[in-house]
């Protein structure tokens, strides 16, 4: 495996950037993303010239229950709160130095998801950010050509969101035991 990239210097240079210990990622505020990205790409200690993977994650408001044994040997339930948010994840590598990955995330709210497009920094984001816009509904400011890419233009909603409910006119492939088949037999679904 190629070696991991030290991240401390990023935190020093950009105080706004946080380091997520749990997952080992840089959390970059959406306002600073382009600046950080350009620095990561051009700085000699990083030279992250290759942005491999760009994707979104949709976190709903969730509670995690974790059972932990305390000192007395009893099990306690600790409730973690996971706030609702959306993230855009960038996996960065350096082709020149053959290092990587450094994972960078832009965080944004679920209500008004907005992130900075890094397409001007790395062209490889172009289609992937379009895909995120299409499937997650995150708006990329500064994207040259932000359109739907996988779904058709008239499509309503963003299917990769965790709370997406598919409409009833969805094209089902009826299976002999499906509820759809029952409805089909009752004459409610037109194939």
């Amino acid at each position: 495996m190629s070696e991991a990239i030290p991240h401390e210097s990023v935190l020093q240079r950009f105080p706004e950037v946080e380091w997520d210990e749990e997952f080992g990622t840089l959390i970059v505020p959406a306002t600073k993303a382009t600046e950080v990205a350009i620095w990561l790409r051009d700085d000699d200690s990083f030279r992250l010239d290759y942005c491999s993977n760009v994707t979104g994650i949709d976190y709903l408001d969730r509670e995690f229950k974790e059972k932990v044994k305390n000192e007395e040997g009893k099990t306690e339930t600790i409730i973690h709160k996971d706030p609702a948010r959306m993230e855009v994840v960038y996996h960065l590598y350096s082709m020149e130095k053959r290092t990587g990955p450094l994972v960078m995330k832009q965080r944004t709210t679920r209500e008004k998801p907005e992130a900075q497009s890094l397409t001007p920094v790395w062209r490889s984001c172009e289609l992937q950010e379009r895909e995120i816009y299409d499937l997650f509904g995150i708006n990329f400011t500064g994207h040259p050509d932000q359109r739907r890419i996988l779904m058709w233009d008239e499509f309503v909603g963003h299917p990769m969101r965790k709370d997406y409910v598919e409409p009833f006119d969805y094209e089902w492939e009826p299976t002999p035991h499906d509820e759809i088949l029952e409805k089909h037999q009752k004459g409610k679904v037109i194939f």
Partner: peptide, 9 residues
């Protein structure tokens, strides 16, 4: 340059 920047692999 474009190949690297555009993430061609």
């Amino acid at each position: 340059e474009l190949a690297i920047n555009a993430g061609i692999t």
